[in-house]
Design a binder for these strands. Structure first.
Length: 491
RNA sequence: CGGGGUGUAGCGCAGUCCGGUUAGCGCACCUGGUUUGGGACCAGGGGGUCGAAGGUUCGAAUCCUUUCACCCCGACCA
């Protein structure tokens, strides 16, 4: 864990930004609130995509693609949906530019005004449900299990790299079902897929739960989420899965004939994760030396740094190392041999630590003579000398060990950062002095939730799926409550 | 939209208060040499409409006016 992360909250944004830039994950761009994802950052995203895509296929889903532009009128079909998104939409009003008659530049051609404005999608429920109407006639057309990889635009007032950008990359699953039960089952299944991905691949423990009505997706009947805890003690919503009921089917008139020849509205779900997961990854594991990547998502899992004085020595190292590289690649491990001669080993060590490469091998004259290689692990920064015999298996196990260790570390951090509060004073004290998750009783009303948010800046992150029934009193109103919910200050 | 800050070489910055040689430093880059087990060193070199526009002045990175962009804090955030 990065030292003093909780005490440097004020500078945490700066620290986070610097890391994103220095590790060459992304840069701010010329466009307000947008960012450039650099090749190294994108390579991590691609690994996430590949794994998620595999998991979607394994659960029976197919990919498809829908338009970027959505006619404005589509948004007004579902009342709470438009209310949720109207404030942050980019709107296309014209389709042409022309030379500025008063100067050298170009201006929007007033002649080219669109009759109906187009909205750059902030999410695709509307355009997809408008399309599904033509795909669905009978129960035999169901279920539809479709996922889209796309970019979306939300004109947020304040942005942060990866966590909240004006344009972001994501996937959005949109499914259509014949029954409520089946749709709910899908919703729960997909939040499970996300939780598995977060824990097994990103090495980030997450709480699975449902959102309070206030925090629900605009247009959803129920929103399931996974919530992760960052090292500064703030929560991050890492993924959501929504049970949409028949809201969108009714809004877009999507009906089907049942076996019994009865006309019924279709049941829907939608679920998504975004490049925000990159932010979660960075903030969960990084330390003062830079990024720490879990082996399963690291574009480079092993880097080999040769230590040499003369070209002949490099040649000798290369001869020793080539079979090792082959053997590692045979095991599906990605290896980089950094034989650049214009940088010193020390420089390279720092560079790869900054970029979070899980395992670093260093080999020089001394090692060649002894038949050894120096192995450094990024998570603990430990250095050990290994015999070259069967090195690929040892590295393979080491990578597994690092993956596991990162998860355990993050888990014990979360556990030690999860507190219970039974009074309002206790609640505020924990938020101000300890941060993290706070388990507390809530009377279940939106009014109380709102007041708590206003007075403490903390929101209900979720009502955990596994939370036990427990009699208690709401920390704010004192009214009776049947279970604890999880509060935190959040991104 | 409020409060604060920053724009000077690819990156990071000094210089601005108090106007005055040819606008400087570190990193990076190029050439040569020595180096290389935790961000090497020496020598030489290239790179700038000082965010933009207007004004004051003999003279503006520096003063005045206007404007743009970005960052941080807040409001906002399925």
């Amino acid at each position: 864990m990065a030292k003093d992360l909780t005490t440097r909250n004020e500078n945490y944004s700066q620290w986070y930004n610097d890391l994103v830039v220095k590790a060459e994950l992304a840069d701010n761009s010329a466009v307000r609130g947008c960012m450039v994802i650099k090749p190294y950052g994108y390579a991590i995203w691609e690994k996430m995509q590949a794994q998620l895509d595999k998991m979607f296929k394994e659960t029976g889903h197919q990919n498809a693609y829908f338009p970027l532009f959505i006619p404005k009128s589509f948004f007004s079909r579902e009342a709470s949906h438009v209310e949720g998104f109207a404030k942050e939409c980019a709107v296309v009003t014209h389709y042409r530019l022309k030379n500025d008659p008063d100067g050298g530049g170009v201006v929007v051609d007033p002649e080219a005004k669109l009759e109906e404005e187009l909205i750059v999608r902030p999410t695709s429920e509307t355009i997809i449900w408008d399309t599904y109407r033509s795909w669905i006639q009978s129960y035999r057309d169901l279920p539809i299990l479709v996922n889209q990889w796309a970019n979306v635009v939300r004109w947020e007032m304040r942005t942060r790299m990866f966590l909240r950008t004006t344009e972001f990359l994501w996937q959005e699953g949109h499914t259509a079902h014949a029954t409520s039960e089946e749709a709910m089952e899908e919703t729960v299944k997909m939040i499970g897929v996300y939780a598995d991905f977060a824990e097994k691949h990103m090495a980030i423990p997450v709480l699975k739960g449902v959102k309070s009505p206030n925090e629900r997706f605009a247009g959803a009947v129920e929103t399931f989420c996974i919530e992760a805890l960052m090292q500064d003690g703030k929560a991050l919503q890492a993924g959501t899965s929504h049970f949409l009921g028949q809201n969108f089917a009714k809004a877009f008139e999507v009906q089907f004939l049942t076996k019994e020849n009865k006309l019924e509205y279709v049941w829907a779900t939608s679920w998504g994760v975004s490049t925000r997961l990159m932010g979660a990854l960075i903030m969960s594991h990084s330390d003062d030396n830079g990024l720490v990547l879990p082996p399963k998502l690291a574009p480079i899992q092993v880097v080999i740094v040769p230590i040499f004085k003369k070209e002949e020595q490099l040649e000798e190292i290369r001869k020793t190392v080539l079979p090792i590289i082959d053997a590692l690649k045979q095991k599906g491990i990605s290896v980089k041999f950094d034989d650049r001669d214009n940088l010193t080993p020390g420089w390279k060590f720092n560079e790869y630590e900054l970029k979070g490469v899980p395992v670093r091998l260093a080999i020089g004259q001394r090692d060649i003579e002894n038949g050894t290689i120096e192995v450094a692990r990024r998570d603990t920064l430990e250095k050990t000398s290994y015999q070259l015999v069967d090195i690929e298996t040892k590295i393979e196990h080491l990578l597994e060990n690092i993956q596991d260790n990162l998860y355990q570390k993050a888990l014990s951090f979360r556990e030690s950062s999860t507190h219970t509060a039974d009074t309002w004073e206790e609640f505020l004290d924990i938020l101000d002095n300890k941060a993290g998750f706070v388990e507390a009783h809530w009377d279940g009303t939106a009014e109380t939730e709102q007041r708590i948010k206003e007075e403490s800046k903390a929101t209900i992150r979720c009502i955990p799926l596994d939370s036990k029934e427990e009699e208690g009193k709401c920390i704010f109103s004192g009214k009776p409550s049947k279970q604890r919910v999880v509060f935190a200050r959040a991104y």
